[in-house]
Structure formats: structure tokens, C-alpha cells
């Protein structure tokens, strides 16, 4: 392995790395919020909302991210990176909603009953009593989804998103050092995902202790 690929193209790698981070973090925050919202839709005591939530999840969870990405890009005519981040959010939201829903359902029904019987509204009870407890249960599966999200962001490359994978495609096409380039890119992804893994297990331990 020759590291001159890295040193000669450092600016491109770093540019791609930056774009990947921005796309991942944006999609992560957005899909966490949207996912929580969809999860609540799925379990709210109102059938039409349940159906809406279920339709969202079943639809976007069951089509390839690549198709969503191309669709958002071609139909809305956004820049590659914008379209990619939106597609990533739409897709990841479905999985996060399922994880959060499972977490909410794991909280004993009595918690909601106690909260409602004291006069809190459904949404107050959800926000103040149920979700803070559910989030602890949900941290490990959410961690998985976040790691998937970072890796899935590589699909942004197909619509010229300017991310790590896209830069790697350019570099390897120019230098013909295909293996070297992609090994380096894999390392860049590890730099992102390993701390994410560690962060999640740290959170998991800390929250377990507070119980």
C-alpha cells in the first residue's frame, strides 16, 4: 500500500470527509426528530394517525435507498448533497421510528395511566413520562441505525454529492489505484463509525447507571 495516494489527494479526501460528516449529522438529527414523531403517530390512540405512520414506515423501509435518492434528486432537482441528505433522512426515519416505537411499547402501561389520571394530556404524558424512559431502551438499536446511516451516506456519491465515496471515485478513476483509494476511504469511514459505536455504548452504560 502506497500512502502517496493519501498525501497527494489530501484536500479531496478531507473535502469528502467533511461533506460526509455534514450529511450524516444533518440526516441523523432530522431522522431522530422525524422518527420520534412517526413513532408517536403509530401508537397514538387515533386510528387514522396509526395508519399514516404505518404507511410511511412500510413504504420507505421496503424500497432501496438508492431509488429514494435518485427520485429526490431527479424530481426535485436539488443539488446532489441536498437531495442525498433528504433521501437519507426519509429512509432512516422509517427505521428509527420502528426502534422508538418498540421502546415506547416496552414502557409499562401503568406509566401512561398514572400520568393521564393526574390530568396530564396525552402529549404531555408522552413527552414528560414515556419518551424519557423509552429513550434509554432505544439507545442500542438507535446506535445501529446511526452507524448504518453513516455508511449509507456513501450512496450520495451516485448523484455527485461530493462526499467521501464520490471523491474516492474521482481519485481512483484518475490514478487507477483503485484498491489503495478505497482502503483509505474505508479508514475514513471507520474514523467516523468507531467513535460513534463507543459513544453509544458509553451512553448506554451511563443511562443504565441512572436507573
Amino acid at each position: 500500500m502506497n500512502f502517496s495516494i493519501l498525501t497527494n489527494n489530501m484536500d479531496m479526501f478531507l473535502q469528502g470527509f467533511k461533506v460526509t460528516i455534514i450529511a450524516s449529522v444533518t440526516a441523523l438529527i432530522a431522522s431522530l426528530l422525524l422518527g420520534a414523531f412517526i413513532a408517536v403517530l403509530r401508537i397514538a390512540p387515533y386510528k387514522p394517525l396509526n395508519r399514516l405512520g404505518t404507511t410511511y414506515v412500510e413504504f420507505f423501509r421496503n424500497i432501496p435507498l438508492l431509488i429514494i435518492t435518485l427520485f429526490v434528486y431527479l424530481v426535485f432537482n436539488f443539488k446532489g448533497i441536498t437531495a442525498g441528505t433528504i433521501a437519507l433522512t426519509i429512509y432512516t426515519t422509517a427505521f428509527i421510528a420502528e426502534a422508538i416505537r418498540a421502546g415506547i411499547l416496552s414502557i409499562p402501561e401503568g406509566q401512561m395511566e398514572a400520568a393521564r389520571s393526574s390530568g396530564l394530556t396525552y402529549s404531555q404524558a408522552m413527552r414528560i413520562v414515556i419518551l424519557p424512559q423509552a429513550i434509554k431502551v432505544v439507545i442500542p438499536p438507535l446506535g445501529n441505525q446511526f452507524i448504518n446511516l453513516v455508511k449509507n451516506s456513501s450512496l450520495v456519491a451516485v448523484i455527485a454529492g461530493g462526499d467521501l465515496m464520490y471523491q474516492a471515485d474521482l481519485i481512483s478513476a484518475r490514478t487507477f489505484r483503485v484498491m489503495d483509494t478505497y482502503i483509505l476511504v474505508a479508514m475514513f469511514y471507520l474514523v467516523l463509525t468507531i467513535p460513534l459505536s463507543l459513544g453509544v455504548s458509553y451512553l448506554e452504560k451511563r443511562l443504565a447507571k441512572s436507573n
Binding site: 406509566q111 398514572a114 393526574s118 390530568g119 396530564l120 414528560i128 413520562v129 424519557p132 436507573n211
Partner: peptide, 25 residues
């Protein structure tokens, strides 16, 4: 209402359990 299995909020202290509804409701 008082339940058989108490249903206190486990993520809140005793005091927080009690002041929640009076503050929010």
C-alpha cells in the same frame, strides 16, 4: 388515583414525581 403497582415515574425523584402534575396541570 393510587394503583396496585404504584406506577411512580422511575426516572424522576420522589419530589419530582409529586410536583409534576401540580406544575404542568
Amino acid at each position: 388515583m393510587v394503583f396496585q403497582h404504584f406506577h411512580l415515574y422511575p426516572h424522576k425523584t420522589v419530589l419530582q414525581n409529586i410536583i409534576l402534575a401540580p406544575m404542568k396541570v
